[in-house]
Design a protein around this nucleic acid. Sequence first.
RNA 1: GUAGAUGUAGCUCAAUGGUGAGAGCGCUGGACUGUGGCUCCAGAGGUUGCGGGUUCGAGCCCCGUCAUCUACCCCA
Length: 419
Amino acid sequence: MTRIRAPRGTIDVFPETPGIWRLLEETVRSVCRNAGYAEIRTPIFEHTELFQRGVGESTDIVEKEMYTFLDKGERSITLRPEGTAPVVRSYLENKMWAGPQPVKVYYIGPMFRYERPQLGRLRQHTQFGVEALGASSPALDAEVISLLIRVYQCLGLEGFVVRLNSIGCSKCRPRYKESLINLLSKHVDELCGDCQRRLLRNPLRVLDCKNERCTSLAKELPPIFEYLCEDCSQHFDGVTQCLKALNLVYELDPTIVRGLDYYTKTVFEVVHSGLGAQDALGGGGRYDGLAEELGGTPTPAVGFAAGIERAVQVLQDAAGEEAGRDACGISVFVAAMGDEAKLQAFRMTHTLRKHGISTDIDYLDRSLRSQMKYADKLGVKKVVIIGEDELRGDYAIVRDMATGEQTQVPFCNLVKALT
RNA sequence: GUAGAUGUAGCUCAAUGGUGAGAGCGCUGGACUGUGGCUCCAGAGGUUGCGGGUUCGAGCCCCGUCAUCUACCCCA
């Protein structure tokens, strides 16, 4: 029999990192709630069409990375590859537009993409994200960006960089695309194979190509700022103004274009150099056209998504392996010798637990010496020792593991002595 | 989907084509029959990823396969 292993691209979060995970999740929750974002939990699978229409038929995610299958009712189902389209679907389906606007929600949960795993990339990974729907104010873009930064700041994470860009809207982006095509067409031969293909389909992608020659060509291209329409341009100014008001440092980066079709106007990424080739901790932007694309009324919205595993990786590099270890948290160990004492110890352990004292006991019939060793490894503060002598005298020995000091405590006073 | 690297004990790694595949750490026990950390001793633990091939002989060489890692594409 061959041993069953976890499927490719999945990991067990155990035993090294649950501590960091819990800290991260708690930080996300408190930062979001502090800014008026409520939790939303959407299904882990959705109708395939949601992502085809929402994320975009021509994106890599939809083209080749989705976990799609037919269920027993012949429906095409997809494990969610991202969180935004489901939230918008939920907003529309639950008529959240009928309540006070904007609707601000956050989520934490698993996402699935069928890709080759590498550093910072898994087939099942966890994202936290926020979405603010129903308002087009640039202040909301800035708020969303500030939330992401705040999460990292609260965790004491350093060395990340915020990159900001605007990719315009359906009015002005086509003009920019057109001029990119015109300018790049003159240099088709110098572009890499991928970019030659991208040129007609989505010329913006040439901007963030990692190929050196494409990069140097891209540098010569005019930035999109010169092509933004009045509306987009004003909006972008509003965003930068708000960010400056918060003293948030960012870099203007005309090369970030994002791989999902639904983005409009503001797009941003938070990157960290400690992540290898996949250097984005998180990213997001505005998606004013998505609700309409999903058959709802036009609804302006903005949000981000960020990778938990990637944040954990950076935090652990900074703090060391042991930092995330989930200590058992046991404070008292009951060591016993002899059958009668062991039964008494078993009962005592449960009594102590009932009184809120975290307690553990030996289950391997070990010698006293070994029980002491084990108690030491657990890191307990006190060990309660019972043998035949103690049973006869109706008391237990309580040993302080830090000082080595031992006292005799009558059984009836044990709870008080250990509290 | 493509490319490269790597698969030996729970972990990190040794072993010129040649005896019964070793070490450190960890685990279990003992020295100390009822007292942890330090020290010393002992023990358990392996289908050398899997399947073929070459050879008198393969952990080592060759082929295939699977897995992991890294990178491309793209993204969290």
